[in-house]
Amino acid sequence: MTAPPAGTRILSLAHHQPTRVLTNEELAGMVDTSDEWIRSRIGIASRHIAAEDESVADMATSAAAKAIARAGVDAADIDLVIVATCTAVDRMPSVAARVARNLEIPAAGVFDVNAACAGFSYALATASLAVAGGGSRTALVIGADKMSDFLDWEDRSTCVIFGDGAGAAVVTATDSPTDAESVGPVVWGSQPERGSAITLGTSGPDGPRALFRQDGHVVYRWALTALAPVARRACEQAGVAPSELAAVVTHQANVRIINAVAQKLGATRAVVARDVVESGNTSAASVPLALSKLLESGRVSSGDPVLLFGFGAGLVYAGQVVRCP
């Protein structure tokens, strides 16, 4: 244990996407769908699909290695590794332990978080709390999912939605509570009574099945009615008005949901991330992946306040305002 710091900040962000791009036109040759149907309902044009031998840990390692390099720290400086994922095929060891091994990170605390598509926001909050409490000095936070392993490629309502990828951040202590690169307080919670609306690997009448299923109507109505007030509370907790946000990066589930949350929030100046158009829904990877791309493109700058907001199976949600590295 070290002495608790004044606050926490993100040093760097990075992402990884598989090389294969699956377009709507290609999907139309695989299942009863069309480019117009997918774009009008979800807003997706393409998604990246990992190769059969490219694992969640592989993608997480690639994103993490880039984030560590950009942060200018050594692997030995990392004392905590948290991976948010819901698609690890093997139960043990954790994906975090595999990433630590791959990157030769010695003796770090390692564990995985499963909060589905809100996973990165949960993991980032957990890492920030660990650093703020003195239990860690430099943490590696990763969101990575390979949804393609768990899709029913004959179900046009779900297989068209998802892509694969990973995003990573390096989080460290800061001596100033007003540091320009801070991680704000998290606002998180759930509506577990509706948790059955999204499942993966539940037991049905035909026995165990490891396939993604969702009641899209339930999820859509929940997202449109419940999420904007939570996002607003995250801004209030950080002392940042929605109109002051430089960007809004929600979970990349659906363009209509993204637009509705941003509009109801009143983020009038903000760039709204819509990486779902070219990447699909990448589950726990979607928030860091989208923010990393905004930084790379120059659409947000160092010190800019950005709302990160994840939501997904459970039904869970988590939001925090961060300052860009």
Score class of each variant (00 low, 15 high):
residue 74 D to L: 12
residue 283 S to A: 12
residue 232 R to M: 00
residue 152 D to E: 12
residue 319 G to C: 07
residue 135 G to A: 11
residue 138 T to P: 03
residue 25 E to I: 09
residue 242 P to G: 02
residue 174 T to D: 01
residue 67 A to D: 10
residue 41 R to E: 05
residue 48 H to K: 15
residue 24 N to V: 09
residue 320 Q to I: 09
residue 290 A to E: 07
residue 250 T to D: 02
residue 297 S to V: 01
residue 207 G to R: 15
residue 264 K to A: 00
residue 234 A to S: 14
residue 290 A to S: 12
residue 156 R to S: 13
residue 15 H to M: 11
residue 204 G to T: 03
residue 255 V to E: 08
residue 131 V to F: 05
residue 68 I to W: 10
residue 142 I to E: 06
residue 38 I to M: 05
residue 83 V to Q: 03
residue 199 T to Y: 06
residue 316 V to K: 07
residue 241 A to F: 00
residue 32 D to Q: 09
residue 215 D to S: 12
residue 135 G to H: 14
residue 54 E to A: 01
residue 69 A to H: 12
residue 139 A to P: 00
residue 122 Y to L: 08
residue 47 R to D: 03
residue 215 D to L: 10
residue 8 T to D: 00
residue 149 D to N: 15
residue 282 T to A: 10
residue 163 G to S: 04
residue 67 A to P: 08
residue 130 A to Q: 15
residue 170 V to E: 11
residue 232 R to L: 01
residue 292 S to L: 03
residue 10 I to W: 09
residue 253 A to I: 02
residue 320 Q to Y: 09
residue 310 G to N: 04
residue 181 E to H: 14
residue 21 V to I: 13
residue 323 R to N: 04
residue 56 V to D: 07
residue 85 T to G: 09
residue 80 L to P: 02
residue 226 A to K: 08
residue 86 C to F: 15
residue 225 T to H: 14
residue 69 A to E: 12
residue 270 A to D: 02
residue 147 M to P: 03
residue 100 A to V: 11
residue 316 V to R: 07
residue 128 S to N: 06
residue 255 V to H: 06
residue 206 D to Q: 14
residue 82 I to G: 02
residue 143 G to W: 06
residue 226 A to V: 05
residue 77 D to P: 06
residue 90 D to T: 10
residue 33 T to W: 08
residue 307 L to K: 11
residue 95 V to I: 10
residue 107 A to M: 12
residue 288 P to H: 07
residue 217 H to Q: 14
residue 45 A to P: 03
residue 272 V to I: 10
residue 139 A to R: 04
residue 169 A to L: 15
residue 246 A to D: 00
residue 263 Q to R: 01
residue 67 A to S: 13
residue 7 G to F: 06
residue 301 S to R: 13
residue 51 A to I: 04
residue 53 D to T: 07
residue 150 F to N: 10
residue 172 T to V: 13
residue 157 S to E: 11
residue 61 T to G: 12
residue 57 A to S: 14
residue 186 V to S: 11
residue 310 G to P: 02
residue 196 S to T: 12
residue 120 F to D: 06
residue 160 V to I: 09
residue 176 S to P: 01
residue 4 P to Q: 11
residue 156 R to D: 12
residue 215 D to P: 07
residue 244 E to K: 07
residue 138 T to G: 03
residue 112 D to H: 07
residue 322 V to K: 01
residue 188 W to E: 11
